[in-house]
Design a protein around this nucleic acid. Structure first.
Lengths: 271, 271
DNA sequence: AAGTGGTCTAGACCACGTG
DNA sequence: ACGTGGTCTAGACCACTTT
């Protein structure tokens, strides 16, 4: 046990003081800091979930300033190696969960299959008047009744995603009276006879701010994956629209594509 | 024209000096800096591609230190609002290109359809002995001959992606003698009779380092989207494996899902 | 040669979480 | 109450790009 706690003192590089012009300057401190911990994480020396020592302790241990430590930590966070809980500290990231947004399997089902424990909490549920955004995405008029549901999803107890679900109220009368911590797809099919015919899924890496950051308990500006899903029923009508804000280090998106006739390429080229 | 150049002086908030305990401390400077520029970018006042003033000029203009300016800029980079070219400066990000990794359309084709200009440069092409990674992903023995091709993809002249393509050499004799700046799928189908039967695509947000960062001309640690694609032919054999490193702000992944019989869910649950 | 971004120092105060 | 992370200051030198 050394002065930085649960991290073994296997420092295979040390930083000489004030030799800013020597060889060691070719590799920035924060990169070496990162490499050091990345190696330990890969080797399993630092198990996932392990809390890192306080930033000040790390700074002292490695003879660098706290600013540099934070630069390294934030870079490692961007890589997905570690994550932070707002004002609580830095932790080694658990393995990513695989997630196929095109599959019909539910979140819970998919996580369970991977031997992890899924959890769902309803944050809010209400009927609202369709906003501009909802109008555009649901294909209804501004002001039309819409059910708005917000849920928090966890894996092994860690908050990994918040979602905002927008449903055309007219298609699912009384939806909010059912338990909403289960699969929405299942609910809509069983209670309202709505079959998912097609879904359009868009994803982009971005950063969290405002409500999603608050809900996930992460710092504003934390990298994330934003996923939106538009669901059409058997009549090819939009019935639901989801927005998912994922911790970027929690997820690996896995989709499969099936080959289509080669003719399709020419078809598109001449269109 | 003010002292920070091409940015109109529409500063709707100003930072009082040394009033650290007053109301204004509720919102961090770097967040307000971000909000200020985000508003200008959304409003179109700052056109995409515009170069921001030097960091020092921004710091002086907003009466904050350069460290804080950089914190804001890096956060905006994570969001995808702006991007940087290593040691050249900060620029407003162009709109994302849509990309469907499950479609049979080629990169060039897909970009062109969106009214953008696609470019491809072959960075390297060689025959190598299969590494551990290639062995595992291609399903061949370590040391087997593999064609390794590395390409840089641009949109409107901006480098947005580097890819590394690994192909079983035995399946495509003489592949490297063909021009490699065109669609690999087309080449393999026309010259070697290989039809894409299925592809498995995995994606995860991460950060760039080493070769991909160098190739894209971005700083180490820049957020990115990593995409790997495994392609199986009509005999259900792996013939090719791609790794794509995307600038995270350049892309929006768009896939569509088709509804499957509800029975599939029970089927999986009992598996 | 000058300018700019990349890296880094040595401090500081505040807000929030945990004891 | 204390410790920790979150924010911020006012400088500095270096490496690289641009003039």
């Amino acid at each position: 046990m050394n002065k930085i706690g649960n991290i073994p003192q296997t420092i295979y590089w040390s930083i000489p003081e004030k030799t800013r012009k020597s060889w060691d300057r070719r590799i920035p401190y924060y990169v070496r800091f990162r490499d050091h911990f990345a190696a330990m994480i890969e080797a399993g020396t630092l198990a996932s979930g392990t809390k890192l020592p306080p930033e000040r302790a790390l700074a002292e241990e490695f003879s660098i300033t706290r600013v540099t430590v934070r630069q390294a930590l934030i870079r490692m966070e961007a890589e997905g190696l570690i994550f932070r809980e707002e004002r609580r500290g830095w932790f080694v990231s658990p393995p990513r969960v695989r997630y196929d947004p095109t599959a019909n399997t539910s979140f819970t089902e998919s996580i369970t299959e991977q031997g992890r424990v899924a959890g769902t909490t309803v944050l809010s549920q209400q009927q609202v008047a369709a906003s501009q955004w909802e109008s555009a995405h649901l294909g209804c008029a501004v002001g039309d009744p819409v059910f708005f549901i917000s849920r928090l999803r966890t894996v092994d107890g860690r908050a990994v995603m918040v979602e905002q679900i927008h449903v055309k109220a007219a298609r699912c009368p009384g939806l909010l009276d059912y338990p909403l911590d289960q699969s929405m797809t299942g609910l809509m099919s069983e209670k309202f006879g709505i079959i998912v015919h097609r879904a359009q899924i868009n994803m982009r890496p971005t950063a969290l701010s405002g409500f999603p950051a608050k809900a996930l308990g992460v710092a504003v500006g934390t990298p994330s994956l934003y996923l939106s899903r538009t669901i059409l029923d058997q009549f090819n009508e939009v019935v639901e629209c989801d927005q998912e804000f994922w911790r970027h280090d929690a997820i690996e998106i896995c989709v499969s594509a099936v080959g289509r006739p080669a003719g399709r390429i020419e078809e598109k080229a001449t269109a």
